[in-house]
């Protein structure tokens, strides 16, 4: 294992983090190679969302380190990390309710190092409904539409890494499937690495290359594609 064929885009080492009085993450280590879709599974409350928020920089790292694209980002602020190329879709989607759909999309342009002209064309190809709703307020979209808008916003300026926190939460099954197909297309381009927190079996099995199973704030197990496709093994890590 001395030489790696692909570069680690994200490296999380023994990270301890959490909220005011208690640590939720008790020394988490994960690594993501370029172009992969890696999932994080586990029961409610094991620290999956905390892990994503810590990687994004919204929670401080108490010990351990985080490296992104070969650079140490452990103590960098969230806005710095975003400008380095980390796109983030929170569990509640984080759509600005009083900005229009177009303005929400424009807010994605500070993610990533390049200041490209925004690629609305490919956004409309992937999510055609957004074109008709450009001038509607974000808050008037349905949950599934907001999820797709949040994903499109995070990707509009080509980040290197996408953090997706439970995209299936509160979204109807047909749209979950659509999101799964979109993520597969995204993987095929090989340009974006995805860290996916998810509980939905279908979505996990459709897109994941491998997964980390968390328990009590630590990584308890690593799951291969075969493990993921075995409903019993997957259920043992997610359900009660």
């Amino acid at each position: 294992m001395l030489t790696k064929l692909t570069m680690d885009i994200l490296l999380v080492e023994n990270v301890v983090a959490g909220y005011q009085s208690s640590n939720v993450l008790q020394g988490v280590s994960i690594s993501l190679s370029e172009g992969e879709i890696i999932s994080v599974v586990g029961r409610n409350g094991v620290g999956k969302t905390t892990l994503v928020r810590t990687i994004m920089g919204l929670l401080p790292v108490r010990s351990g380190r985080i490296e992104f694209a070969g650079k140490q980002i452990t103590s960098k602020a969230a806005d710095h990390r975003a400008r380095q190329g980390i796109g983030y879709v929170p569990q509640d989607r984080g759509i600005f309710p009083d900005l229009t759909v177009e303005e929400n999309l424009r807010m994605g342009r500070f993610i990533g190092t390049k200041r490209n002209s925004l690629d609305f064309e490919s956004v409309f190809n992937n999510f055609p409904f957004l074109k008709e709703r450009l001038h509607q307020r974000g808050g008037t979209l349905s949950g599934g539409q907001q999820e797709m808008l949040a994903i499109a916003r995070a990707l509009i300026n080509q980040p290197k890494l996408l953090l997706l926190d439970e995209p299936s939460d509160g979204v109807q099954p047909s749209i979950v499937e659509e999101i799964g197909q979109f993520l597969l297309q995204l993987k095929a381009t090989g340009e974006v690495t995805v860290l996916l927190v998810e509980q939905n079996f279908d979505l996990l099995q459709t897109v994941s290359d491998r997964a980390y199973a968390m328990e009590k704030g630590m990584v308890a197990d690593q799951l291969s594609v075969d493990d993921l496709n075995n409903d019993e093994i997957l259920a043992a890590h997610i359900a009660m």
Binding site: D79, A82, F96, L99, M107, R153
Partner: peptide, 21 residues
């Protein structure tokens, strides 16, 4: 203007999208 309106609506998300809030 866009950054300011976004920040006032949800500062945490604006920061996570690269805005120096």
């Amino acid at each position: 203007g866009l950054q300011a309106r976004a920040t006032m609506q949800n500062a945490e998300i604006a920061k996570a999208l690269g805005v120096p809030t």
